[in-house]
Design a binder for these strands. Sequence first.
DNA 1: CCTGAAAGGGCAAGCAC
DNA 2: GTGCTTGCCCTTTCAGG
Lengths: 152, 152
Amino acid sequence: MDELDQILLMALREDATQSYAALGRLAGLSAGAAHERVRKLRERGVIRRTTIDVDPAAVGRPVLSFVLIEANAWMGEEPVHAALRAIPELEEAHVIAGSASLLVKIRTGTTEALQDVLRRLFAIEGVSGTQTIVVLETVFEGAGGPPAPSGH
Amino acid sequence: MDELDQILLMALREDATQSYAALGRLAGLSAGAAHERVRKLRERGVIRRTTIDVDPAAVGRPVLSFVLIEANAWMGEEPVHAALRAIPELEEAHVIAGSASLLVKIRTGTTEALQDVLRRLFAIEGVSGTQTIVVLETVFEGAGGPPAPSGH
DNA sequence: CCTGAAAGGGCAAGCAC
DNA sequence: GTGCTTGCCCTTTCAGG
């Protein structure tokens, strides 16, 4: 994980379709060397996968919200995790420190659909309350960080 | 945006490196037709970009936190947005409804580094307070949704 | 880590059905 | 949308330095 790997990761986050030749140019490496480094980054799990960034509004989920979940039981166990995974509107779920127990990120088509997700969250054993934060506008949100502060 | 497009998007989220032949097989299309649909999805902006999913811990940012920012001024304007963008530890920033004004997602190497980010947030004009939520464990967090509930 | 070369595969464009 | 063809670039893997 030296500086060259950092450059490669940054470049791939911006565009994972570019060729190893282009990546090599950015890092000052040959295409072969760039390819070898990226292969090792995948192997080590630094790069988990190659994926696409989908516009949520374009697929009918313009409403973004975060929900703090309070619980009267420990929420760090597998049955709870499985229940969370079963809700497709959840984009993220975290066990947190603080007055609440969980924080989840939710995308729905409408606020009515959000309400239905909340209903399903309340159905999970141990959940005693929720606090919903509705997003009015997303300033930025991307594949790991604000758009390249001094990247290229 | 019919059902076939949905299948293609789902498959690409899981693995954007797979061939159009494989995508076509999943959707019941030829490689050429699959390619054409994906090309149009990119063109329309439904697919914003192809990117990689990097393990935050592997790049020295194991500490994840969310911060609710209170402000005594409207935070929806561009100077504020620019100030947020200038903080590389911020992974997301949202203008929200509710008692706080902004919600940001932060990744740092240590809690000391988090403290320094908070200091920089306080330096933004209009910021009057913060409430920090530290993540103990991430249950899931991926490219758009829990790992394929009934996907394949 | 670089160069070079050979081999394979996927992508793009065009056209007929 | 399918099936096919042609050309091109990139990837992959080998060699050797």
